[in-house]
C-alpha cells in the first residue's frame, strides 16, 4: 500500500518480470492506496522484490501470496460485432451458458460482461474467438486469504 507513486514498478522491469495484472484501488484507510500486482516468477524472486518494494519510502507495507493462497475474481468485457448476434445462433448460447450480461448494444457492436474465475473467462474467450472479438479487457482484483 502506498500514498501515491508507481515509481517502484521499475523493480519488476529490472528483473524482466512481466506484470500479469496491476490493480490500484483506494484502501480502507484514507489517502492510502492498495496496489495488487500479479506476476509469474519464483518465490525467491518475489521475496526479494517484496523486500525492495517495502523499503520504498512511500510504501507502508508490502507482502505476497502464492497462487494457492489467493482468491481471484476476474471481470472481463468482450466487444463483438452486432450482426453476429443475429447471424450466429451459437453466440446466444454462449451468452446464456456463461452467465454473462449484455451491458450495451449499438448498431455496430455490443458488449458482454462476464465475471468469474480465470479459467471461466479463458473458456469464454476461446469460445468467442472464432466469431471475432473486436476488443477484450480483463481485470483481476484479488485478495490473499
Amino acid at each position: 500500500m502506498l500514498d501515491c507513486s508507481i515509481g517502484y514498478l521499475g523493480i519488476f522491469l529490472k528483473r524482466h518480470i512481466n506484470i500479469e495484472s496491476l490493480n490500484v484501488s483506494k484502501s480502507e484507510i484514507d489517502h492510502v492506496s492498495k496496489f495488487t500486482i500479479v506476476v509469474n516468477t519464483t518465490e525467491k524472486w518475489v521475496h526479494n522484490i517484496v523486500g525492495q518494494i517495502e523499503k520504498q519510502i512511500e510504501v507502508i507495507k508490502a507482502f505476497y501470496h502464492t497462487d494457492d493462497e489467493t482468491i481471484y475474481q476476474e471481470s472481463a468485457l468482450f466487444k463483438i460485432a452486432s450482426n453476429l448476434l443475429f447471424d450466429e445462433r451459437q453466440i446466444q448460447n454462449i451468452i446464456k451458458e456463461s452467465n454473462s450480461q449484455i451491458v450495451t448494444v449499438s448498431r455496430e457492436f455490443f458488449v458482454l460482461a462476464k465475471s468469474g474465475r480465470r479459467f471461466e473467462i479463458d473458456e469464454m474467450y476461446e469460445q468467442l474467438k472464432p466469431f471475432g472479438i473486436m476488443q477484450f479487457v480483463r481485470s483481476r482484483p484479488n485478495f490473499g486469504n
Partner: peptide, 8 residues
C-alpha cells in the same frame, strides 16, 4: 540494517 538485503 536493511531487511531487503537479508536472504537476497
Amino acid at each position: 540494517i536493511d531487511p531487503a538485503e537479508v536472504n537476497k
